[in-house]
Simulated scan of single mutants.
Amino acid sequence: MALEIPQTEKVKLKLQEQDGIDERKLVAQQNLELYQARTTRAYEKLSRLRSFRKRESMLVLRRPIVGRHHSPKFAPNWEGHFIIDQVYDGGAYLLANADGEDFISN
């Protein structure tokens, strides 16, 4: 003999179950937001905005645009001694070498 549960009881149980799921979703969402806030705070603590001015000198990191860089193992990671010739919006710079010639990376 199977015990029959009235339809109203089934609906009540289903709603209680749904409420429990909603509460767990809310707790998970709150935990996610707290984690993202901690991560953002830790990143901003270690990073700082760096802007360069015209006539400042700098080195350029040598990196391949695509694929792997196939240079000798002990090749330098940095290129030359460059001077900032022009500063553009958005953090772009026009570089010139020590002789005043525009630098174009190849």
Rank of each mutant, 00 (worst) to 15 (best):
K25E: 07
L61V: 10
L46Q: 07
L13M: 03
K54F: 04
L13C: 00
F74N: 11
S71L: 11
W78Y: 08
R68A: 10
G20W: 02
L61N: 07
K25H: 06
D22E: 13
A37C: 06
S57C: 10
L61M: 10
L59A: 13
E33Y: 13
S51C: 13
R62W: 06
R50C: 14
T39G: 02
G67F: 02
Y35R: 15
R38K: 14
H69S: 09
A37H: 12
K10N: 00
K54Q: 15
T8V: 00
I65N: 04
A75D: 10
L34C: 07
T40A: 14
E44Q: 15
E9C: 00
E9R: 01
T8N: 00
N77L: 07
K10D: 00
G20S: 09
Y35W: 11
K10E: 02
K12C: 00
L34I: 12
E44F: 12
R48C: 08
L59N: 12
E44W: 07
M58H: 04
P76R: 08
P72I: 03
Q30Y: 10
E79F: 05
S71N: 07
F82S: 01
K25Q: 05
L32W: 05
L34N: 13
L15Y: 00
S47I: 11
R50Y: 12
E33A: 12
P72F: 05
Q29M: 11
R24F: 04
E56T: 05
F74P: 00
D19H: 09
S57I: 12
I21Y: 09
L49A: 10
L13A: 03
A75L: 02
E56M: 14
A28W: 05
Q16I: 06
F52G: 03
D22N: 13
R63C: 05
K10G: 00
N77F: 05
G20F: 03
P76F: 02
E9T: 00
Y43P: 01
D22Q: 09
P76T: 11
Y43M: 12
R53I: 07
N31M: 14
L26D: 07
K25L: 12
V27F: 06
E33L: 15
L15I: 04
K12E: 03
Q16G: 02
G67H: 01
N31Y: 08
N31I: 09
R62F: 08
L15D: 03
E44V: 13
V60Y: 12
S51V: 15
G80S: 01
G20L: 07
L15E: 09
I21R: 11
L15H: 00
R50G: 08
K45Q: 05
G80C: 02
E79T: 04
R62P: 03
A42L: 14
I65H: 06
Y43L: 15
K54T: 12
A75W: 07
S57N: 10
V60S: 04
Q16E: 10
T39A: 13
T39I: 14
R68Y: 09
E56P: 03
L59G: 14
T8C: 00
G67E: 06
E79V: 03
N77A: 08
L46E: 13
R63L: 13
Q18R: 06
S51Q: 14
A28D: 07
S47T: 15
R63M: 12
K14R: 06
E44T: 14
L49I: 10
S51G: 04
L32I: 07
E44M: 14
Q30H: 08
A37K: 15
G80V: 01
K25Y: 02
E33F: 09
T40D: 13
T8K: 01
K14E: 10
R24Y: 01
A37L: 15
